[in-house]
Amino acid sequence: MPNILVIAEMLDGKVRKSTHSAITFARNAGGTFSILVLGQGAKAAAAEVTGFGAQKVLVCDDPYLANPVAERFAPTIAAVAKSGFDVVAVTASSFGKDVAPRVAGKLGAGYAPDISGVKDEGGKLVYKRPVFAGNAYATCTINTPVQVVSARQSEFSAAEPSGGASPVEDVALAAKDAAAERIEYLGLSAAKSERPDLGEARVIVAGGRALKEQFATVLDPLANLLGAAVGASRAACDAGYAPAELQVGQTGRVVAPRLYFAIGISGAIQHLAGMKGSKTIVAINKDPDAPIFQVADYGLVADLFNAVPELVTELKKATG
């Protein structure tokens, strides 16, 4: 039975909800798990994850870890992993994907990235992961005694608390990497938004290039009504109609909300790779042959500039 170390990701002094996917991974893999919360303010944030059934919540609270710089985090993660863990698990967020290979390198461990499933087969963990932009799934195993994995947020739904109170223990900051001296963190620029994060939203309203300069004016009323996150196709981002961080696809975010609206999106492979896992997909496009209709549960061939405002009106009626 594996003993798993789940790495919690922090933002603004809180544990990011993306961490809950790595906890689900640990539960699915069987065995036991502990959660390592590291960052500035980790001590206060640790309480957020003591109710998930972890054996321990380990805390490394240090200003050295104030910003997400892989070279600063990897030494401590690797040092804690060496204290009796078989698997190190992160969520495959941009933070997880940045730091996990460095941890694997330090541990001499094999790394299975962006996995979508895990099974214990006779004491050996067998992983499933999407390849070729999700057009095939590979089965793989890791050949080293310690293993590192990143779990795809869209495939491991966020864990719910299971009660109890895991004991909290402090761990020391490991010796610093020389490489970290050569990185200066200048800052994060992020558009402030009241909307849910794309990775966590239950509903996503995504738009394509067809929306042109009216991207926000057309989509915002629908997104506001549904409490949805707004996404975009690569074409819409490239054309400057939507900011890059809204991009859904092989580049950009991989999402799996309960309801996904693809509006004026033709459905290029790169885009489908990022949203095919959504539970219900609605496509609105005036081209009846657009590939998006092949994955849509409900397709509407229509001019989006008429259909979307009408949709807002009808939804208001239907949901009262």
Partner: peptide
């Protein structure tokens, strides 16, 4: 460090339908 033991195609999505109007959607 990693061994790939097999590949498979993803499960096909159930065929969707076209709706003809917004109220129907």
């Amino acid at each position: 460090k990693i061994t790939y033991t097999g590949f498979e195609l993803p499960p096909a999505r159930k065929a969707g339908i076209k709706v003809t109007s917004v109220p129907e959607l």
